[in-house]
Design a protein around this nucleic acid. Structure first.
Lengths: 114, 114
DNA sequence: GATATATACATAGGATTTCTATGTATCATT
DNA sequence: AATGATACATAGAAATCCTATGTATATATC
C-alpha cells in the first residue's frame, strides 16, 4: 500500500467501503479515489489492488461487469448482498480497532506495578 | 496479534510507545499491559512479541538488562537514545495514518465522476 | 510522426509481519 | 502431584502488500 508498512489488513475494508458509497467502481478508479481522498498519503499499488479485487470476488463479496471503451476493457465491481452486510461489520471492526490503538498510544500512563 | 488481521505494522510502535511511558518493561509485562489497556481487544502472542523485541534491539532502538528472580531470568528492555527519538516519529506517523484511514472510511461520499 | 504519459488490466515472486505450535523451566496454588 | 501462571525462545506457516514486469489503448506533447 506504500511507504509506511502500517497498513496490512486495511486494504480490503477500504475497497469495500469505497464500493459502498460509489456503487460501481473499476480498479484504476479505486486507486485514484484513495489517492485523492487521502491527499496522496495512501497510494494503492496495482500489484496489491487487483489481486485483492480478485480475492473479494472469489469470496462472493463483490461482482464484476465488463465494459468496453473503444477497444479497452474496463471491469466494474459492485458489492453483492453478502458483500454489503460484510462491509458494515468490517467497517465497524476497523473503526473499533483504530480507536483501540489510538487509546493505547495516547492514553499512556505508567502502569501500577504489581 | 490476534483474531482480526488488521494489525500488521503497529506492533513495533505499540512496544515503543509502552516503553516510552514505563521506562523499563519485560516481555511478559508488555503482553499484560496491552491486554489490560485494550480490555482484551488486542492480545499479543509470544511468538510475535519476542522476535519483535529482538529485532528492535538488533536495530539499536532498545537495550536489555537481565535480572534474576530466584532462578528465573527476566529481561528488561528500555529505549536507547536513538529509540526515544524514533518512538516520537513512529507514534506521530501511526496517529496520522489512523486519522487518514478514519477519514477515508467515515468521510465517504460519492465521487464526482469525470 | 514519434514519444511520453495516463489509463487499464494482469501475475510471479519477494519481503515483511504476525501467528501457530512447540519447547524449556520456575513458581504458586490446589 | 497437578495445574496454571510466569518467563523466555524459535522454526515454520500463513497472510498481506510490494516490486517488477508484461500487455495494450488513448491522449498529449514535441
Amino acid at each position: 500500500m506504500q511507504s509506511n508498512e502500517l497498513i496490512k489488513g486495511t486494504l480490503t475494508t477500504i475497497i469495500l467501503s469505497l464500493l459502498k458509497e460509489n456503487q460501481r467502481m473499476y480498479g484504476y478508479d479505486i486507486t485514484r479515489a484513495v489517492k485523492e481522498k487521502t491527499q496522496g498519503k495512501i497510494l494503492l499499488k496495482e500489484g496489491s489492488l487487483y489481486p485483492a479485487l480478485h480475492k473479494l470476488q472469489a469470496e462472493g463479496l463483490i461482482e464484476s461487469e465488463e465494459e468496453m471503451l473503444g477497444k479497452r476493457v474496463r471491469i466494474y465491481y459492485k458489492l453483492t448482498k453478502t458483500g454489503k452486510s460484510r462491509t458494515k461489520t468490517q467497517i465497524q471492526e476497523l473503526l473499533t480497532f483504530l480507536d483501540t490503538i489510538q487509546e493505547l498510544i495516547l492514553n499512556e500512563r505508567p502502569l501500577a506495578h504489581g
